[in-house]
């Protein structure tokens, strides 16, 4: 049978995958995707806890509201982050993190 621990393990494994991606890959766009993966892993844990904390026959909607806010913040973050990447590519002609060693353009 599927328990809360199953969901939490999938969440933890997804977070670990995202973390490994951030460390291993050097393409800044892939690193950014892995950050999104880690955010989603946290969302899965939150929704899991929400479903298993049943009060008066309903799941805990406070946790799901937090997930809603997380998704919105992630969407705004992606937009700004990709704009920064485009600006970076314009000045350096590269998306490899190894070539980005100075803050000044």
């Amino acid at each position: 049978m599927i328990t809360l621990n199953h969901y939490l393990f999938v969440s933890g494994a997804l977070f670990a995958l995202g973390l490994a991606g951030v460390v291993v890959r050097r393409n800044i766009i892939i690193i950014f995707m892995c950050l999104e993966m880690m955010l989603s892993a946290a969302n899965l844990a939150l929704v899991g806890f929400s479903r298993f904390r049943v009060t008066d026959g309903l799941p805990d909607y406070a946790a799901q509201s937090l997930v809603f806010f997380t998704i919105t913040v992630a969407a705004a973050e992606v937009a700004v982050g990709l704009a920064v990447i485009v600006a970076l590519y314009r000045t350096r002609q590269s998306v490899e993190v190894d070539t980005i060693t100075r803050m000044r353009g």
């Binding site: 969901y7 999104e36 989603s40 969302n43 929704v47 899991g48 929400s50 479903r51 799941p59 799901q64 997930v67 809603f68 998704i71 919105t72 992630a74 969407a75």
Partner: peptide, 14 residues
């Protein structure tokens, strides 16, 4: 996990 709204939002937004 019975979170239909969040599931649909996940597909729409992400």
């Amino acid at each position: 996990l019975d979170a239909y709204f969040i599931g649909i939002i996940q597909i729409l937004v992400y």
